[in-house]
């Protein structure tokens, strides 16, 4: 058995995880999120500098939790893309250094495949086929997933404009709520009436693509609603607007995810990404999956957001599938599309 060290630095979280044979043995997470608050979002240079400071302590912390030492590490897996280039460089450089120093194989993996793998650490291997909804600040995607490392990952749909998490951040700006917008809107919505404002459910019309996502128009509808009230000198009911907006996002996401399961005759829905931590998204998914006879798998919040354990999980699958390791010249690929979990040596297309 091989202990795999996973490294994730694609955005503002420095994540390290240690996985062996599908079991998470230790992990560590260092976030530079607080340093980005005053900018209303992640600033690449700040994130990259924070990764440089955090990466080695995070590796040591994860090893300590696992009761292991560097000498026990048998392989390294690292997020090589997509993400912020300057941030990715830090993790990839660290991974190459560890792989060289320890003389162990290196795997360059796709960030989104890591998200899909995160759930296997708590709920065991995925079934033969599942639909994965990845919903975060940078992504809103539906994937059709089989064997995570042997089969191609089929990208069913992506947002055509803003990601759902981005809409949360921008609506938070409009409502005068802090960054990051997701938790702020979730908290504000708790005391609000979700049917106070009938915000649109984007791309749910008869002629719209059944699995397509678009959140730009919804964001604008909220901005317009707030402006109209503000211009009239009326009070802006932040809680009601937050709850109504959150309901529109959750309703749209879950509707489309269930439609994808039906369309592809899949019985399991996996939801991951930062927005999967949203209380209304989770509740609505539970309610509708139960009603529709679908198995719902949502990892705990700390595995929903970016982390190193999910990258170690993919690395572990690659090691066990006897995949060829990456060379030490493997580049970062900030805007790589998702087709295979392994970015350096994808299996040959049939």
């Amino acid at each position: 058995m091989t202990l795999v060290l996973g490294i994730e630095t694609s955005c503002d979280e420095t994540g390290v995880g240690l996985v062996e044979d599908g079991v998470l043995l230790g992990d560590a997470l260092s976030s530079s999120m607080l340093e980005h608050v005053r900018f209303g979002g992640v600033v690449p240079e700040i994130a990259a500098r924070a990764h440089v400071q955090a990466i080695v302590p995070a590796v040591h912390e994860a090893l300590a939790k696992a009761g292991a030492t560097l000498a026990d590490v048998g392989a390294i897996a690292v997020t090589a893309g997509p993400g912020l280039a300057t941030a990715l460089h830090v993790g990839v450089a660290a991974a190459k250094a560890y792989a060289t120093a320890l003389s162990v194989p290196l795997y360059a993996v796709h960030h989104l495949a890591g998200h899909a793998a995160a759930d296997t650490l708590v709920h065991g291997p995925l079934p033969a086929k599942s639909v994965v909804l990845i919903v975060s600040g940078g992504h809103t995607s539906l994937l059709l997933v089989g064997d995570l490392v042997a089969d191609p990952i089929v990208h069913l749909s992506d947002t055509v404009d803003d990601a759902a998490g981005e809409a949360f951040d921008k609506v938070a700006r409009v409502l005068g709520l802090p960054y990051p917008g997701g938790p702020a809107i979730d908290a504000a919505a708790a005391s609000g009436n979700a049917s106070a404002v009938a915000f649109p459910r984007p791309l749910t019309g008869r002629n719209d693509p059944p699995l397509g996502f678009s959140f730009s128009g919804l964001k604008t509808a909220v901005a317009r609603h707030v402006e109209t009230l503000a211009r009239a000198g009326a009070p802006v009911p932040v809680a009601d607007i937050a709850a109504s907006f959150q309901e529109a996002v959750a309703d749209t996401l879950i509707r489309k995810a269930i439609a994808a399961c039906r369309l592809h005759e899949v019985g399991t829905l996996v939801i991951v990404g930062g927005v999967a931590a949203n209380s209304r998204v989770r509740a609505l998914a539970q309610e509708r999956c139960a009603a529709g006879g679908l198995e719902l798998r949502v990892p705990p919040p700390r595995l929903c957001t970016d982390n190193g354990a999910m990258i170690a999980a993919i690395g572990d699958l690659l090691v066990r599938a006897k995949a060829a390791p990456a060379t030490l010249t493997v580049p970062v690929r900030p805007s790589v599309q998702l087709r295979w979990a392994d970015l350096e040596h994808p299996p040959q297309e049939l």
Binding site: L175, A188, S191, A230, R231, A239, D240, A242
Partner: peptide, 18 residues
């Protein structure tokens, strides 16, 4: 209308009132 956080206008020109 329910009580909740009080709205304060965003700092930047995120929305247009004037």
């Amino acid at each position: 209308m329910t009580m909740g956080p009080r709205w304060r206008p965003p700092a930047r020109t995120d929305i247009r009132i004037v």
